[in-house]
């Protein structure tokens, strides 16, 4: 399959190869040091960052200075705060300037409460950014038709939500995720809604290429330990997927044959 490299079990997004299947968000941590230690513990190779205006009084809360010095981590700016496509496009261009990376997580959520992504604005922004050469990774509702639409306009991956951001309700969209996975030609990353490592493992078991977590780590009792736990869960889930789950409610051989009796009467 074009979205996976079998031998190394690496996955490829936008022509870039990664071995870690856990992506980390860097928001909502109590301090920069914990965040950096959590990112290291997670072994994530892609971390998301946000863009904000510089305040009038220079602040010393630079969360990302230490991250920039870490080798082998790709910074992926998101477009959080954008309420429509044109704001997201602007944020993406600025993010590219700052991070020097073509990756962008397009996220557009006009409603400040549930933060559900706007499918129409997300599609418009993704279309334009993909044409500009960005590696577009859209945060999206778990909608199989939108998934194909986004794929068709050149997105590098799909990032359907497991449940609402920060809700910790896990893979509430599992049936829709199955449909998305079935037909996807680009990596599928479950983004948002996960609470526990077992949910991340379940996403990988069912064939998702990766997961992105933030709140589940940042708001955990011990964020660094939780990041490590997610790393193990993602690895276990992926290994389980490759190993092939045992059948559930499969079949056993049956002696009686009420449905297939007609086959023994062949009159050729």
């Amino acid at each position: 399959m074009e979205r996976q490299d079998k031998a190394q079990d690496a996955w490829v997004v936008g022509g870039h190869r990664f071995s870690s299947r856990l992506l980390m968000g860097t928001g909502k941590f109590q301090d920069a040091e914990t965040m950096v230690r959590a990112v290291l513990a997670s072994r994530a190779q892609i971390v998301t960052v946000a863009l904000r205006r510089v305040g009038r009084i220079p602040r010393e809360d630079d969360m990302l200075g230490p991250l920039g010095e870490l080798k082998g981590i790709t910074l992926m700016p998101n477009t959080s705060g954008a309420r429509n496509a044109s704001e997201a496009i602007r944020a993406a261009r600025l993010g590219r300037e700052l991070c020097g990376s073509p990756f962008v997580k397009v996220e557009i959520h006009p409603n400040p409460h549930h933060l559900m992504p706007d499918p129409i604005e997300t599609f418009e922004a993704a279309k334009i950014l993909a044409a500009e050469g960005f590696v577009v990774m859209p945060y999206m509702p778990a909608d199989p038709v939108l998934a194909k639409r986004l794929e068709d306009v050149g997105c590098a991956s799909l990032m359907p939500l497991g449940s609402a951001i920060g809700s910790g309700r896990g893979l509430a969209t599992v049936e829709m995720l199955r449909l998305i996975l079935r037909d996807a030609r680009i990596p599928v990353i479950v983004d948002a809604g996960l609470r526990s490592p077992s949910e991340a493992a379940a996403a990988l078991e069912m064939g998702c290429d990766a997961v992105l977590v933030n709140s589940a780590v940042a708001a955990a009792g011990d964020p660094v330990a939780m990041a490590a736990a997610f790393a193990q869960a993602v690895k276990a889930g992926r290994d389980a997927h490759r190993a092939g789950l045992m059948p559930q409610g499969g079949g056993t051989a049956l002696a009686t044959s009420p449905l297939t009796a007609f086959l023994s009467e062949e009159g050729q």
Binding site: G244, P247, G249, G250, T252, A253
Partner: peptide, 13 residues
């Protein structure tokens, strides 16, 4: 093998 057949019948995807 028969086990492969069972696995196939119980496979999610």
């Amino acid at each position: 093998t028969p086990a492969d057949v069972e696995r196939a019948l119980g496979c999610d995807a």
